[in-house]
Nucleic acid binder design. Structure first.
Length: 531
RNA sequence: GCCCCUAUAGCUCAACGGAUAGAGCGCUAGUCUUCGGAACUAGAAAUGGGGGUUCGAUUCCCUCUGGGGGCACCA
């Protein structure tokens, strides 16, 4: 539809203004305009020609038979038959409507969540899971085969500190008088883990058991975090353990490679990553500490070597905003290992801020005063949680009011979408008529065609998100669609005395149901047939 | 000090440089003999301040002010 209009416009441009090829768009017209599509071609041409936009628009409209509107838009209205084609396509494609084969045969690997095992995932970080998962699903709808991966940071100084904190609580239980470790972890959860640890490992734990305690603690937290993700419908294909990267010698090998390529230098007894890069010039990072231990970045080098040399067409890292300083270094690694930087996407999401009333709650894992993702999930439920977390652009800081969480959970927009889906189901069940062989041409009122038009936006929305990763457009679209449907429902009676008309309208609401279901599923929300 | 985000309605968020700045929640007033009222209809209500670029700026640039997060031989 859109392409046809675009071609027609291009022809007219060639005819009226040869040697003036321009980039222009044909978009769905805004809701308040009585048209289906609209183009900015005249506005852009006018600039180039140094003429008034309305004049150019008028000239073009005469050729195209379209309407014009200030300040110079060309508006197009489609014949109902055109919409019937799309209508039929939805009914035929069903679950496949919205998918495409743009990336058929390609492979992507997406790393997300990768929470540190030093504490439960807090609400601030909770965006990473649903966001990453939607991106995986969106990539799949364009034909990618996706590997979902997670880096488990199971070694390092922070993990040691957690172990020491737990040891402290273990000793405390034995009525000893241990000293709280410097930089130890505050909060309730280390105490819980200490209890579990003494149950499992024995009552009289002491310094000698530290490595056991560490292993127990990170496994405890790690599996708990994976459990929370699972509750949100997120499961990983590959867990990469940092310890494995080290033990297997992969870190050593990758670091060697960096050295051989002369991208590292010695300074103060440590080995630094020092690519010849303007941006990284004064942001060099330590790879091997002067005590001989590798840093986390060394593991990252090894990990990304694997990502870049394993035959994937697309590599995606999804990181919290506190890692943004890390991004250029990761991007520099594409050059080290010969990967096309265009095919490596690092997506950064901003944190969710928690408010209690007007007060912003400062959250820090070490201070232990954070609200966990699990708490919120249990409170508002999976569907509301996902819809809420995905409703805002990832680069905005969202505010979350815990006090209002329960209140708003049953007023969450997701229910409006779910309700539309369930309502349709109920109509379909009630009528018992067959949707097959419906006479689609009986659908011609503006309410009906308007609904089809809204449905028709879905495939290109999915395509757009697969390129821009603007995931938040999806929940907004679904909410708009649900509202459109509810409005339609109030005005148009689906089940009537006229069997043929009923059949056609049932086909229409079925089409709406298909799109609602496909959209919800991409978000990881199960469409409900009853509520 | 430097870097990355950010400031839109009472609250939480939208808006390829374009048309009357849109939603949800809350508020006000309605719809209820019809397919599910978790719905619909109508209304009040907003671009932080100051410059600039443009036919046109919420959007781009500069600046001021206020938020969040980074700038470690932490992960």
């Amino acid at each position: 539809m859109r392409e046809e209009i675009k071609e027609k416009i291009e022809k007219v441009v060639k005819k009226l203004y040869p040697e003036n090829p321009v980039e222009f768009s044909v978009d769905f017209a805004p809701a308040n305009i009585d048209a289906d599509f609209s183009s900015n071609i005249a506005l852009i041409l006018a600039k180039k020609l140094g003429r008034k936009p309305m004049e150019v628009a008028e000239e073009m409209a005469r050729e195209l038979g379209s309407q014009i509107a200030a300040p110079g838009f060309l508006n197009f209205k489609l014949q109902p038959e055109k919409w019937h084609v799309e209508f039929e396509r939805i009914l035929n494609e069903q679950r496949k409507y919205g998918t495409n084969e743009l990336n058929k045969g390609k492979k992507a690997r997406v790393e997300y969540v990768s929470a540190n095992p030093t504490g439960p995932i807090h609400i601030g970080n909770a965006r990473g899971g649903p966001y990453g998962e939607v991106i995986c699903k969106i990539l799949e709808t364009t034909g990618y085969k996706v590997l979902r991966e997670y880096l488990h940071n199971d070694v390092g100084g922070q993990v040691e500190k957690l172990g020491k904190t737990i040891l402290y609580w273990c000793e405390k239980q034995q009525d000893l008088e241990p000293e709280f470790p410097e930089g130890g972890y505050q909060g309730e959860y280390p105490q819980e883990i200490a209890k579990a640890a003494s149950k499992k490992l024995g009552e009289n734990l002491n310094e000698k058991n530290l490595s056991e305690i560490v292993a127990f603690a990170i496994e405890y937290i790690f599996s708990e975090n994976l459990e929370v993700m699972k509750k949100m419908g997120i499961e990983f294909d590959l867990i990469v353990k940092e310890s494995e990267l080290q033990i297997s010698g992969k870190v050593e090998k990758a670091v060697e490679e960096v050295k051989n390529k002369k991208l590292a230098k010695e300074k103060d007894g440590a080995l630094w990553f020092a690519p010849n890069d303007d941006f990284l010039q004064d942001r060099e990072a330590v790879i091997i500490k002067s005590d001989g231990h590798p840093t986390y970045f060394a593991s990252d080098i090894a990990y990304h070597k694997e990502k870049f040399t394993s035959g994937y067409d697309l590599v995606v890292d999804i990181l919290g905003s506190n890692h943004h300083g890390h991004v250029p270094k990761l991007q520099a690694l594409t050059r080290v290992f010969g990967f096309d930087p265009e095919h490596f996407k690092v997506l950064v999401y901003q944190y969710v801020r928690v408010k209690k009333g007007d007060e912003v709650v400062k959250m820090a894992k070490r201070a232990g005063n954070f609200i966990t993702a699990k708490e919120v999930l249990d409170l508002v439920g999976k569907d509301s949680m996902i819809f809420f977390l995905l409703s805002t652009a990832v680069n905005t800081h969202m505010d979350f009011d815990l006090d209002l969480a329960r209140d708003t959970s049953d007023k969450n927009p997701v229910y409006k979408v779910q309700y539309a889906h369930a309502r349709i189901q109920s109509i379909l069940v009630k009528s018992k008529l067959d949707v097959e062989n419906a006479k689609l041409e009986l659908i011609h009122s503006s309410e009906e065609l308007g609904l089809i038009r809204e449905l028709a936006k879905f495939p290109e929305l999915v395509e757009e998100i697969s390129e821009t990763f603007n995931v938040h457009h999806l929940p907004h679209y679904l909410l708009g669609l649900a509202e459109r449907f509810h409005g339609f429902y109030e005005k148009v009676k689906v089940i009537t005395d006229d069997e043929e008309l009923t059949r056609a309208r049932l086909a229409l609401v079925r089409a709406a149901q298909i799109v609602l279901a496909n959209g919800l599923q991409v978000m990881g929300i199960e469409p409900l047939e009853k509520m």
